[in-house]
Design a protein around this nucleic acid. Structure first.
Length: 304
DNA sequence: AACCAGGTCGTGA
DNA sequence: TCACGACATGGT
């Protein structure tokens, strides 16, 4: 009990940027914010609840996984945080594809793309349409609290948890009525969530079948869900199915890419996606995340 | 008080 | 194909 696991000198990692870059929603910052170099978060993922802290270190950062055994880090969190990946290679590849991204990557050098649960990613990004990130987080929290399995609080080393339940399983969401789903404040997305839960629960769409398909085929299958279009499908591919060549184009990416590549001219999202995938190839998804963070920080293309 | 938000669907040219 | 309004909810 209360054994912490610590890893040191981690490069290309910034906990805040990893979590706050809009790829995941079931987490909360829990430190005071007094020390600008320290970050502590509570994350619900991988059928677990993790408390994790980041501090500066001589060659990068030190991460403390609270109440975590070494085997849990090795078999669960290492993969979840994409820590097996060589980000120096990824960055080099992207900069070679477009040298103008060097500064952008430098500014956001701690981003990683998480390897998240497929079903949770699917539902989360269905919720994300026409919503801002704080609201998405709230709906994910409500859905979990109302329909997911509750934690055994006695398992944890502190009583004041931000969350009280796991994200609902396909079965739990499929069993819920549309009204129950609506009480999470997901609004008009309730039937979309219903349809997704149904198709996954009854085996019409499975992780196994999607893994056998190439990215474009898998996207078609995902888009057979009512309420899943190009953008949501691409997010599921990138964040929930490990398809790092996927390049989701939302309003932000549209503005950023028009600014970067089309002389500010109005350009269809499909063209932007196609060109980006040609330009950035197998790492288009990483390029997308760096560009997204950059665009948000500097409000690229926002008119006033 | 309108208007917008990591969109998608349905409709009508 | 393509443009456009509707869709819940909450925040400026």
């Amino acid at each position: 009990m209360n054994k912490n696991y610590i890893i040191e000198n981690i490069k290309d990692f910034h906990l805040r940027d990893v979590l706050e870059c809009g790829q995941c929603f079931h987490f909360e910052r829990i430190d005071s914010g007094i020390n600008p170099d320290e970050f502590e978060y509570e994350i619900v993922a991988k059928d677990r609840i993790l408390r994790i802290k980041e501090e500066p270190d001589s060659e990068g950062v030190r991460l403390t996984f609270f109440n975590t055994e070494k085997w849990e880090y090795d078999t669960v969190w290492k993969d979840y945080f994409d820590l097996d990946r060589d980000y120096a290679e990824i960055k080099g590849y992207i900069i070679e594809a477009d040298p103008r991204l060097e500064d952008i990557i430098y500014e956001n050098s701690g981003i990683r793309i998480l390897n998240q649960d497929f079903f949770e990613t699917l539902i989360s990004f269905i919720i994300s349409q026409n919503k801002q990130i704080p609201q998405i987080k709230q709906v994910v929290k409500n859905l979990s609290s109302e329909l997911g399995s509750k934690f055994d609080i006695t398992m944890f080393d502190r009583p004041d948890l931000e969350f009280d339940a796991f994200f609902p399983t396909p079965e739990q969401l499929n069993l819920a009525s549309e009204d129950e789903i609506r009480s999470s404040k997901c609004g008009f997305r309730a039937p979309y969530i219903k349809d997704a839960a149904e198709k996954v629960y009854n085996g019409e769409i499975t992780l196994e079948m999607l893994s056998k398909l190439d990215t474009d085929e898998a996207r078609e299958v995902l888009m057979s869900i009512h309420g899943v279009g190009e953008k949501v499908a691409n997010c599921v591919l990138l964040f929930g199915l490990g398809r790092r060549e996927a390049f989701p184009v939302d309003v932000w990416m549209k503005r950023i890419c028009e600014y970067m590549y089309y002389d500010e001219a109005d350009t269809p999202k499909a063209i932007i996606e196609e060109d980006a995938r040609k330009r950035f190839g197998k790492y288009a998804g990483y390029a997308q995340q760096y560009l997204f963070m950059y665009g948000q920080k500097h409000k690229i293309g926002i008119k006033r």
